[in-house]
Design a protein around this nucleic acid. Sequence first.
DNA 1: AGGGTGATTGACGTGAACGTCAACGTACGA
DNA 2: TCGTACGTTGACGTTCACGTCAATCACCCT
Lengths: 160, 160
Amino acid sequence: MGAGMTARARQADDAALHAIGEIASRAGVTTRTLRYYQEMGLLHPSGVTRRGNRLYSDADVERLRRILELRDVMGFDLERIRLILQTEDRLAELRAEAQRGISAARRREMAREAMDLNARMQYEVEEKLGLLHGFLAELRADASRYRDIAAHLDIEAVES
Amino acid sequence: MGAGMTARARQADDAALHAIGEIASRAGVTTRTLRYYQEMGLLHPSGVTRRGNRLYSDADVERLRRILELRDVMGFDLERIRLILQTEDRLAELRAEAQRGISAARRREMAREAMDLNARMQYEVEEKLGLLHGFLAELRADASRYRDIAAHLDIEAVES
DNA sequence: AGGGTGATTGACGTGAACGTCAACGTACGA
DNA sequence: TCGTACGTTGACGTTCACGTCAATCACCCT
């Protein structure tokens, strides 16, 4: 498809779809990463040109942001991220109603599953927050010790 | 050396040296990891038997804890961790006095280097703390939405 | 009509952080 | 004395998360 279409992406009905290169550079990753995430079942572009070029929606961009957040901030591997997103997706389907084919029992199970996952992740984040606070305290303590040393060196400098 | 010596490690002068297997299992890593860290210049056992078995001191254990903290909490790679520990080590040497061979200018440079590194790391930790707080907020918001869905499902259950 | 740009699908390569295996040595308890 | 447990040094294997390259295709501009 090439460039130039960027400004004309918003045609009539489709709400702003973007090419892979644009999405990648905006997110600070390579196009290879996006293809790999698709291959891993993490992020499927919501559109495609007749030639086969991937088209990403704003929702896709948001999903990518979530993936990178889980990867960089929490340090999860891609399989873990896939499971998390999968659970969230299934819950989103629940909300979307029109899920008449799913039994009430199954729906309650899905909701419980998502809530369990959410609770576990909250616990992990809180734990990590505690560790990070401790680490920050260590750093500040080190800093004050460093200042003492620097002061000592200054005194030596004056004496000599 | 084998087992059994564990309790007799504290002989006369050396203050409690432990075998690699004990250290590894206590830290939740394998012995391979400890050997790899030595190979990478991250953690050198402070003792060794005449046959060649590694002996780790309590200070070594503390250093290992630092390494795993930097690896797991901050997500740094081993090279980055090596540089951090190296800078801290040099500063510790400064404090230990008896560094008459080092010029005042060099000592001041080392102190400044350590303080710069400390400041950069504090910034990174604070940044990560911010991201984690944001992530936790997302999770809590999700949780309340999930509760709504669960409540809705309960109402349906009552209706049916 | 031709060139530049950005996309596609394979397929193979790579670096980090270990895992695993072979061959060997040694101390301890029965 | 012998088996078991634990240690040693190579050396090769493995997984993850991409990087890189080749061959091809389709727009866009001049």
